Structure formats: C-alpha cells, structure tokens
Simulated assay, not measured.
Amino acid sequence: MNAVTIKDVATRAGVSPATASRVLSGNPSTSAESRELVERAVRELDFRPNAQARALRSTRSDTVGLLVSDVRNPFFADLAHTIEQALLELGYVTLLGNANENQQQQDRYLDTLISRRVDGVIVAPQGTDSASIEALLAREVPTVFVDRTVPGLDVPSVTTDSGPGIRAAVRHLAELGHTRVGYIAGPQSVSTGRERLESWTAAIAEQGLSDDPALVHVGDFQSASGSAAVHAFLSLDQPPTAILAADSLMAVGAIAMLHRLDLRIGRDVAVVAFDDIEWFSLIDPALTVISHSVEDMGATAVALLQEVISGGRPESVTLVSELVIRASSSSPVPTPPRSLGRN
C-alpha cells in the first residue's frame, strides 16, 4: 500500500495542496473552514507527515521584523530594546529597520522583510498611504502597529492617548501664569503628530491661552526642527514664555538653541517635552515631561503580535500619558525673553 501524501489529503479535503500544507504547518492565514476540512481528511486517511520533510517545508523563520521611526530618537531606541528582549525570550530573532521618518525608506525595509518571510512585523508606520504596508496585509503577514496607526487599516496597535498628558501640561503652564506658549508640533502626515496637535488646540482653548497661529511650529520629529521652532518663536514681537515640544528629539533641538542664545531654561523660558527619556531627569534643570511607559508599549506590542501569529484578532490597546513636573517649568519672568531682533 502506497503511503498517503499531502496531495491525497488535499484531494479528500477539497482544497489545494498549498492550503493543506499551510494548515499542517500551523500557518494562521488559513480559514477555520479549511482547517476543519484538512484535519478531517487527515483523520480519515490516517495521514502521518514525515517529520524531516515537514521541518524543511516549514514556513516558520523564527524571525520578526521591527521597523522604528528613527533609531536616533531615544524613545524609539528604548522601545526597540524592550521589544527585542521580549521577542528573544519567546525564541525570535529581531531584524531591526530604521525608517528615518521617511516613507520611502520605510517601504524599502518592509519589502525586504516580506521577501525574508519573517513570522511577523511590528512597525511604527510613516504616512497615511503605503503600498508596502498594504502588501504586508495582502500577504497576511502578522502585523502590529506600535506608537502610530494608519487611518482605514484594521491592524492591531498599541498607542498612547496623548490628550491627558497634554491637557495637564497646558493647565500646569496656565496656572503658573503663562498666556503665550509655543508648541512644536510633529509632522501632520503621521497619527501622533495629528493627534497631539488636536489635543494641544483643545487644551489651550480650555485654558484660555493665546491661539496665535505663530505660536505653533510644525516640525518633523527631528532635532533640527526643534531648533528652528525656537528661532522662529523668539523672532516674534511677543515671544512665548513657555515651549512645549511634541517629542523628545525636537525638545533636544529646542534646548540646544535656547542654550546657544544664552536663555536659561526654567527661568527665562519654561520648557516641557513629550516623552520621558532617561537623561531628561538628569540635566540641569531637570525637564518637565509628558510621560508614557515605553516598557508597557513594547511588551504589549509583542503580546499582540504573538496573538496575531497564533491566528487571533486582538483588540488594540491605548496607554495613558501623564505629566511629570520638574524644574524646567516655572512662572514667567516679569519681562518676556528677548526676541532675536532685540539685544
């Protein structure tokens, strides 16, 4: 009697050999109906797959792709470390990519990860329209979004609700007496940039602070745009007495420019940053921040991906943000900091 083959199983189940193979290898992309048909055919035919051949054909690579927005950003560096360590404990090797806040660079990495047949992908997406992200989903590569999302795409994600932290920061500055606060916004092409600007706009309206459009500078989540924002703010006839930066790298650029202009943080200008990177608490003065847990975000992203790889459809998770008050935020000085045009 000839040995039963996978083609025999596929014929009995009424599916293609490829589908039968995916079911037998545990691939989560197969439908419940296909799995039931193949499993019944296996029982009826008493099919016993050859273990060695099954291992050679396995689609599992024990690798996961991780694509962060910018490896120079301390928040994403910490996030990548958290995710990599959690994946390693589960037996996965992490292939790390750096999008550099650029959609074309993101897509190049994603195309490579697809070709390498990774078991899953965790990505902080760039922009709102990516053919490579669409290709990931079309190929049913288990995918999780981290920190950011893409409108219209039903992908499990772990993000932060920026609203509570931003409202608390604006309320804190208002209570100190600030009425003109400069906001360094992130790019509006990504979800965090849009959501934080929306939260900022609502918060200053609630507190009755100036809504002068010149007090909002749209940056790109990189340090140079933080420096450019400070330069623009201090060129105004009425410069802001406080500045809030929507991410850590733009805050770093803002701090560098303030130092270059010999303005004292916490005395001449109050400064608040989104993201609590380790050294923000160590500089003098220590920086007031809007904090959210990078450890929780990384651990949750890995847990969600595990569930997707296993064939589940987990709900997205939203973490909370909170204000951590330190010495960099203080009451405004009697006269506002000088503009660049007045020495």
Rank of each mutant, 00 (worst) to 15 (best):
A228G: 04
D62A: 14
A301F: 01
P240R: 02
I114H: 03
A80C: 10
R264E: 15
I166Q: 01
T94Q: 07
Q207S: 11
N100E: 15
A256T: 11
Y183N: 01
E175V: 12
G177L: 05
L95C: 02
Q105W: 00
E44W: 07
T63V: 14
L66Q: 02
N98F: 03
I133G: 08
F280Y: 12
E101T: 08
I204H: 02
S34P: 06
L340T: 15
P332M: 10
N2L: 13
E206I: 10
E36F: 00
S162C: 09
I265Q: 06
I283A: 03
D129Q: 14
S248L: 07
D296Q: 15
S21Y: 11
L215M: 03
I166V: 15
S210W: 08
V144Y: 00
L234A: 01
R60G: 08
Y183L: 05
V317P: 05
L261D: 09
A246M: 13
G312L: 01
V333N: 14
L287W: 08
A51T: 12
L67N: 11
D268G: 04
A32Y: 07
G219I: 05
S132M: 08
E84L: 05
P49Y: 06
I309F: 00
P285W: 10
S210I: 01
E101I: 08
I277M: 11
F75D: 02
L173C: 04
T288H: 05
T159Q: 09
E295Y: 09
L56Q: 08
V9Y: 01
R12H: 11
P334R: 09
P187G: 05
L287N: 01
T241A: 06
S321E: 08
I325T: 14
G91V: 07
S61E: 05
R338S: 13
F280H: 08
T149H: 13
D284K: 10
L113V: 06
A55R: 15
L305W: 00
L96V: 13
D211L: 00
A124W: 03
H172T: 09
E295L: 12
L24N: 04
A10E: 06
P332Q: 10
V71L: 15
S162L: 13
R72W: 00
Q188M: 13
E278C: 04
H172W: 10
S115Q: 14
A41V: 09
D129E: 15
L37A: 15
Y183K: 05
G226A: 07
L258G: 03
T192M: 00
E322S: 15
F221S: 13
I166M: 10
S58K: 04
L87T: 06
A246E: 06
L88W: 13
D262W: 00
P17D: 05
R180F: 05
L136H: 10
R54M: 12
R194H: 07
G312T: 04
I309Q: 11
R40G: 03
T143D: 02
A270W: 06
I265S: 04
R260P: 00
